[in-house]
Design a protein around this nucleic acid. Structure first.
Lengths: 255, 255
DNA sequence: CGCAATTTTGACGTAGTTCAACACGTGTGG
DNA sequence: CCACACGTGTTGAACTACGTCAAAATTGCG
C-alpha cells in the first residue's frame, strides 16, 4: 500500500474510467438484456422496426443524477448501456439503503411494471447512459405484434434469473468475509459479462456504497480487503480489483 | 411460558393446522399469482378455456416431498395452492441452504424459465398442493392467443415484484433482530395476503429452517423471539405467532 | 409410555461494530 | 502558492452482539 503511493494518483480509476467519457464502455446491443425488444420484429413475414416507436437510445446521465424517483409512476423501463446505477431505498428516518446495483447490459426499473411505480430511486455512479423503453407504447405495439410479447417475456425472465443470482450471492452468508467475497465474484461476472473473464475490473462504487449494500461497516470492509490481499487472494489498489485465486475465493464465498 | 403448560398440547398448531388435512387452507383462485393464465381467455370475441390444455390443478404433495430437483430441465411452473414450500440450494460440501419460501398463491419455478432449468429444489413443508402449468403447451397456446401472453407478462411481473419485496426484507439488516423482525413482517403479509390483516399466523417452517434462511443460529433466533415476547411485541407459542405492535416492529425492522 | 427431534437457556469466545485517529486527494478561497 | 476543510479509505483499541458448545426443557411420534 505504501509503495503504491508514488503512482497512486494514476491508479486504475484514471486509466480506465477517468479522463472521462473519452473511452466510456458501452455495452454491445447484442449483449444487452433489453435486446429482445430493440431489434426489428418479424411479424407475418415482414420485418418491422417497431422499436422506433417506443425506444430512446443512449441517454447520457451525469454522475449522481437519478434516472427515476422512488414511488414515481412507471413510465419507462431502462437498460444501462454504460456506467453503473445504484438502487436506493429510504427508510422513515431518511437513511439511504442501497438495495442493488445495475451494470451495463442490465435492466433498470423492470420490477416497477406490476405495481406501476418505481420501488426505489436509481442513481448513476459515474457518468452513465441509459436506453429507455416507454411502457405504454411497448404495450400498444405488443398487442398488435404477438412476437414482441414473446420477446418481452424472454427479457423479463432473463432479468428475473439474474436477480435470483444476485440474491443468492448475498443471502445468509455466515461471515462478513464470505459475504464480501460472494459479492465480488458476483459483480466480477456481471461487469465482464460480455468480455472474456479476466477477473480484473474497476469497482465503480465507493467502499461506503458496498458497505451500505452488504450491511457492513466501511471499516470492516477495509480490514477484510486488506486481509484478502495479504493472503494473495486479491490485488486491490484504490478501485482497481484483481481476483487472483478464484477457486479459493469461491470456496470462501460458500463459507 | 410455564403457565401455558396445561394447555400447551392444544395450542394453536393443533387448532389451525394439526389434525391434519381436514381443513387444509387452499388459496382462492382469484387470489393466486397464476390466475392470469388459468381462467378463460378472450380471443377475438370468443371465450376459450385454453387453460385445460396446459393446466393441472391441485396436485397433492406430501410433507417433505419435492416438487422438482435442482438443475432439472424446466417442464412446469407451479403455483402453491395450499401449504408452503422451501427453496433449497446446495453447496459443494452438501450443506443445504434455504434461499426462499413460497406460500399459497405464490409461484414456484418461474425463475427457471430463462435458464430452462430449475435453480434450486422445492420441498413441501407440511402437506401441500400445487397447480401445474406445462410451459411448452403454454407457449404453444400463447403463440395463437396474444391475450394469453399479456396475461403471462402480468403474472411474471407480479411475482417479480413480490420477489423484490422479499429481498428488501432481508438485505443488509444491521442486527439479527431487525433481520428477523423484517422477515416476520414479510411473511405475515404473505401468509395473510388474501385475508384481512390480523397479524396472527402459524409459522409453517421450523426454527432451523428460518435460521438457515436468515443465516442465524437457531439459538440466536430463539433468544430474540423470547426477547421480543418479553417486550410485548409478539406473542409466540410453538409455531403460533401474533404480532402485537406492528408499528414498533416495523421501526425495529428498519433498524 | 418412552425415545427422538425440536426448542430454549446458560456460559464463554470471537467476529464485527463503534469510536477515534490518521493518511491521502481534491477542491476552495485568500 | 499555501492553508484549510472535506470526502474517502485505512488502522488501532475497546466493546458487544452473535456464534459455539453444552445441557435442560418441551414437543412430537411410534
Amino acid at each position: 500500500m505504501a509503495k503504491s503511493k508514488a503512482r497512486s494518483g494514476a491508479s486504475a480509476p484514471f486509466n480506465s474510467r477517468g479522463m472521462n467519457s473519452s473511452q466510456e464502455q458501452y455495452v454491445k446491443c447484442q449483449d444487452c438484456a433489453m435486446n429482445p425488444v430493440c431489434g426489428p420484429v418479424v411479424s407475418g413475414g415482414s420485418q418491422l422496426s417497431l422499436a422506433d416507436s417506443y425506444l430512446t437510445k443512449r441517454c447520457a446521465i451525469q454522475s449522481g443524477e437519478q434516472a427515476f424517483e422512488k414511488h414515481a409512476p412507471l413510465k419507462d423501463i431502462f437498460a444501462v448501456c454504460s456506467g453503473v446505477f445504484k438502487l436506493c431505498d429510504q427508510n422513515e428516518i431518511g437513511e439511504e439503503k442501497i438495495v442493488g446495483f445495475r451494470f451495463a447490459g442490465e435492466l433498470l426499473g423492470d420490477d416497477a411494471i406490476s405495481p406501476n411505480r418505481y420501488n426505489y430511486k436509481a442513481i448513476a455512479i459515474g457518468k452513465s447512459s441509459l436506453c429507455k423503453v416507454a411502457m405504454s407504447q411497448l404495450v400498444d405495439c405488443s398487442k398488435a405484434v404477438p412476437n414482441l410479447q414473446l420477446q418481452f417475456i424472454s427479457l423479463l425472465t432473463k432479468q428475473n434469473y439474474l436477480n435470483h443470482q444476485g440474491i443468492n450471492a448475498i443471502v445468509a452468508k455466515k461471515t462478513a468475509e464470505s459475504l464480501l467475497v460472494a459479492f465480488l465474484l458476483n459483480i466480477a461476472k456481471r461487469i465482464n459479462a460480455s468480455n472474456e473473464q479476466t477477473w480484473q475490473f474497476d469497482l465503480p462504487m465507493s467502499r461506503d456504497d458496498i458497505a451500505n449494500f452488504l450491511g457492513l461497516r466501511r471499516e470492516t470492509l477495509s480490514r477484510i480487503l486488506t486481509k484478502l490481499q495479504k493472503g494473495n487472494l486479491i490485488m486491490i489498489q484504490g478501485k482497481n480489483m484483481k481476483l487472483l485465486n478464484v477457486d479459493v475465493l469461491s470456496r470462501l464465498a460458500n463459507q
